[in-house]
């Protein structure tokens, strides 16, 4: 991938394999993500994307292979890796306000407890354009707004690596600038990995594409050709590229991607 301009790579995977209940989910996955890379991790649902994220986060232990995150064991990197989970996983009925969610990002980290906490939270909320909602309960937010709050929570960690799981799933509204501009800006400061099953939603600004369907295919120049996608999805796909955005239609007639 792109040149590691300073320090160790954000992520190094070598021959990673993992089976869940006897079914192989990841096979021989090797990947290096540099300190300022901006990578899209694509693949069909069930292709192992979330499992790969869990391996990088130290929540799942691979059966085979070597994992290094920020130069050490994944668990040792905790607090320095920002993680934005999928929005739909959340119970929006939980009694909590936006600023309390964001404050969570400071809890376990080396930054904890400083007088800078409130400023950091306010700054992160401003960056995702959610300052006006700081005191609202999360139950009053749209999916897209909650997504931004979760991004702010990851940002107060001041991470060196940011992992976003399906951030395109609920970008329903156009308030202010798009989050894609934000991701692009963040990738100047840290390594950014955007995970999605939706090829059409991935910004053309990403600097690399990796396709995961149990095995990983890395494409440094994000050349989204039909061959690349077919290799990843394991079925014929048509790539309709009208500049930007891309749309991909499956060949099964009865379903649309």
């Amino acid at each position: 991938m792109s040149a590691a301009d300073q320090g160790s790579p954000a992520v190094e995977l070598e021959g990673v394999g993992l089976a869940l209940r006897g079914i192989p989910v990841l096979e021989d996955v090797s990947l290096t993500i540099g300190p300022r890379d901006y990578l899209a991790l694509l693949g069909p649902n069930g292709g192992g994307k979330t499992t790969l994220l869990r391996v990088i986060l130290g929540l799942a232990r691979p059966d085979r292979g070597r994992v290094r995150v920020l130069g050490g064991e994944p668990r040792a990197a905790r607090g320095r890796v920002g993680y934005v989970p999928q929005v739909f996983r959340f119970d929006q009925d939980f009694p909590i306000r936006v600023e309390d969610v964001v404050r969570m990002g400071r809890l376990g980290s080396r930054l904890r407890g400083g007088a800078s906490d409130p400023e950091a939270c306010a700054g992160a909320l401003e960056r995702v354009e959610m300052s006006a909602h700081a005191e609202r309960p999360i139950g009053a937010l749209s999916g897209g707004q909650l997504q931004r709050v979760l991004i702010a929570r990851a940002l107060v960690q001041e991470p060196e690596l940011l992992l976003l799981d399906e951030p395109t799933a609920s970008l329903d509204e156009r308030i202010g600038r798009s989050v894609w501009e934000l991701f692009e800006e963040l990738s100047q400061e840290m390594a950014v990995v955007v995970v999605s099953h939706d090829i059409g939603a991935i910004s053309r600004q990403v600097r690399g594409v990796a396709c995961l369907n149990r095995r990983l295919h890395v494409h440094p120049e994000k050349e989204l050709t039909t061959e690349v996608l077919e290799a990843a999805y394991g079925c014929p796909v048509d790539l309709l590229a009208h500049g930007h955005p891309h749309r991909v239609l499956s060949d099964h007639g009865d379903e649309h991607r």
Binding site: R78, P85, M104
Partner: peptide, 20 residues
């Protein structure tokens, strides 16, 4: 309380953020 709140709301994230 902040730790209890974090673990009740999102245990996985709390873990990832460095909370035990």
């Amino acid at each position: 309380h902040p730790l209890f709140e974090a673990v009740c709301f999102d245990e996985e994230y709390a873990e990832v953020a460095g909370v035990r």
